[in-house]
């Protein structure tokens, strides 16, 4: 009876530890965004050979133009992007209006065009150049086949090597890796959602619509709070401008 219990415990602990002892790599990226206001974000990509987690940090506003007030609605918690090669999905975990939501989409098949004879060294790794049109932006990405995983910062993936730098043609988006570390040991599964976790899971299209409504709601709150003798001369809510300018369902 005792022997059986011990065996059970051993096999149980074995299976538990087997799931968690994996070599994983942590890469730190900086994103420089040059949209209406220049913003810099520090993020971290952690991956094994089959999945990756991209944790996006808070944006640091680099400079505020004169006569402008900026209200940051991005919330206090960071945004995560999970790529799962097994079921070919990309999940984004973020918050909207105080509520945590998970946005699920099929892993985008980015049609990368590798530039032959391109060569550059980044952080000591030999990198090759590739170009692709993704969600309204023409990206140039430098990837290293010496790190043979198809991952990269944010939603950029699908190359035969880790993307160490990526920028778009309009100089508005620039991702670049600043640090790389190999770690051995337990892979802290930072709340990776799996199929069971589908409460509050919505599609990408649904998320975009929700976000636009949220921006309008926040603005309405602001207008409503203005004092009695203030006059509003010009209201202009521009279309939300972010990394993605076009979506596959738009034509």
């Amino acid at each position: 009876m005792n022997k059986l219990l011990v065996l059970l415990l051993i096999t149980l602990s074995n299976t538990y530890t087997q799931e968690n002892i994996q070599n994983h790599t942590i890469v730190e990226y900086t994103l420089d965004l040059n949209l209406d206001i220049p913003i810099s974000k520090n993020s971290q990509l952690t991956f094994t050979s089959a999945q990756s987690i991209y944790k996006e940090g808070k944006g640091d506003i680099k400079s505020i133009p004169d006569n402008t007030q900026v209200r940051d609605l991005s919330g206090t918690n960071p945004t995560f992007y999970f790529v799962n090669l097994k079921d070919r999905t990309l999940r984004m975990k973020t918050q909207l209006d105080g509520e945590r939501i998970i946005v699920k989409e099929n892993l985008p098949a980015i049609e990368w065009n590798i530039k032959p004879d391109s060569k550059r060294e980044i952080m000591g790794f030999d990198c090759i150049e590739a170009e692709a049109l993704f969600r309204g932006r023409l990206y140039t990405a430098w990837f290293s086949p010496d790190i043979p995983v198809p991952f990269g910062p944010w939603k950029l993936q699908g190359l035969p090597g880790l993307i160490l730098e990526a920028y778009d043609k309009m100089d508005e988006v620039h991702f670049y890796a600043t640090r790389l570390k190999y770690e051995q040991g337990s892979f802290k599964e930072l709340n990776i959602p799996n199929e069971n976790d589908d409460h509050n899971e919505i599609t990408l299209k649904g998320y975009i619509e929700l976000r636009q409504k949220d921006v309008e709601k926040q603005f309405a709150k602001l207008l409503a709070k203005l004092p009695r003798d203030s006059r509003v001369s010009n209201i202009k809510t521009s279309k939300y401008k972010g990394l993605e300018l076009e979506y596959p369902w738009e034509n």
Partner: peptide, 22 residues
Amino acid sequence: TIAFSNVLVKKDSLSSIISYTY
């Protein structure tokens, strides 16, 4: 078996990548 492994096709070991898969 090794899942999600890189397979690159090149003309020779030093030239550029012609195509790839996983």
